[in-house]
Design a protein around this nucleic acid. Structure first.
Lengths: 77, 77
DNA sequence: GCTATATATGAAGTATACTTCACATGAAGC
DNA sequence: GCTTCATGTGAAGTATACTTCATATATAGC
């Protein structure tokens, strides 16, 4: 699912490794999230949003993603 | 994880079944979320928040849950 | 008492979030 | 060319989100 993790991480001048440590996951997890290979858990999404002082909704473009969800709901759950 | 699903559902006069249909999951899933047996995916959390016109952060008390997370992080991921 | 509706649990299956380990690539500095 | 650092992938394992089916209990209307 579309997200702003990489964009915000770079803007903050952090490496994937640094972000991973900050939110207590492996760097592989951060890489996978940035490449949109899967979606984070609710808590992880919140931790990342917190690091960048934004909301889960903003970090994961939830309002913008809504129409896509409505079309392909089962694919995204 | 502490949440307001049941509280908001009842305030909205909906049954578990009705909420389940509204967000495209089984009623078993709604029951489990209300009983806090597991946490929803990011998308499901957002769909439910949308029904009640609130944010994921409010629905799941994320700011209030933060200290708990800091203590028992691994348990909650 | 019977039926219907809402809420709840057990069990077993599938999908996916997250892990570690091993390895590959590209860019930068020497 | 060698090293270092950041980024990326494959594979295989564990944990958990979500499913269906079967069943149970409580309440309300008849």
């Amino acid at each position: 699912m579309k997200n702003r993790v990489k964009e915000l991480r770079i803007a903050a001048g952090m490496t994937q490794q640094q972000l991973a440590e900050r939110v207590h996951v492996s760097s592989r997890t951060i890489i996978s999230l940035e490449k949109e290979q899967y979606n984070p858990s609710l808590l992880l999404a919140y931790r990342i949003a917190e690091v960048f002082q934004t909301s889960v909704e903003e970090l994961y473009c939830l309002r913008e993603n809504r129409e896509l969800e409505d079309r392909n709901y089962e694919d995204l759950l």
